[in-house]
């Protein structure tokens, strides 16, 4: 997994609530057997019309906005457990998703793919949307080590939560399987005890 430390980037704002995994990556694009290529179909049905022509009003098709931080309305990633949603977001080039609330499974899936979900307050989120609307060049800084996110235009900053283990994984690029395999003796001991 790619390491993550600090990132300063422009942002792509998506001020919609309850963005579910079927919007992030529709089911008909889940047929691949590798992790590659999902970024092309990120937000497919919002991004392209039925003739595969880009829908100009959708944010990813609007060249005013770009960057590797996606900022979305509350309850992002609800619905399916498909990790393809995280692969699509990572594949498109996002390293951070900011929202005031994430669905559980999505959060895990993102972290397992080196994408950092950052939970901010409703106020902070509203301010980011406002800032970017006024100045699409505005940037956010996400500092994982110190668990801080900063809206640079306003010099407004907030701390965010992440459990120490996951933080360590991201900072060092470790994944869970490495950890679990290093614990094999404990697994076998549990199996012995419980038959």
């Amino acid at each position: 997994m790619e390491k993550f430390n600090t990132l300063t980037s422009r942002v792509v704002p998506l001020p919609i609530e309850n963005v579910d995994t079927d919007q992030i990556i529709p089911a008909r694009f889940l047929k691949a057997t590798s992790k590659e290529g999902f970024g092309d179909n990120l937000f497919r049905d919002w991004r392209y019309d039925k003739n595969d022509a880009p829908i100009s009003s959708f944010i990813l098709n609007d060249s005013t906005y770009s960057g590797s931080i996606l900022v979305a309305g509350k309850n992002f990633g609800s619905g399916s457990s498909r990790e393809h949603a995280a692969w699509a977001i990572a594949g498109y080039g996002f390293r951070v998703v900011v929202s005031s609330f994430f669905a559980d499974i999505f959060k895990n899936n993102a972290l397992n793919n080196g994408v950092l979900p950052v939970v901010v307050s409703e106020t902070f989120l509203a301010e980011v949307f406002e800032t970017v609307k006024n100045d699409p060049q505005a940037t956010l800084t996400v500092d994982l080590e110190n668990q801080r996110i900063t809206n640079n235009a306003r010099a407004a900053s907030e701390s965010f939560e992440i459990n120490a283990y996951k933080k360590n994984c991201l900072l060092n690029g470790f994944d869970d399987i490495d950890f679990l395999l290093s614990n094999k003796d404990k697994i076998e001991a549990w199996e012995k005890q419980h038959g």
Partner: peptide
Amino acid sequence: FGIGTSEVEMVLASQCILQTKP
């Protein structure tokens, strides 16, 4: 409960998963 594909790999490899207690 449902899990993502990285976690499917964990379970296959170790019959275990890492979870924060809900």
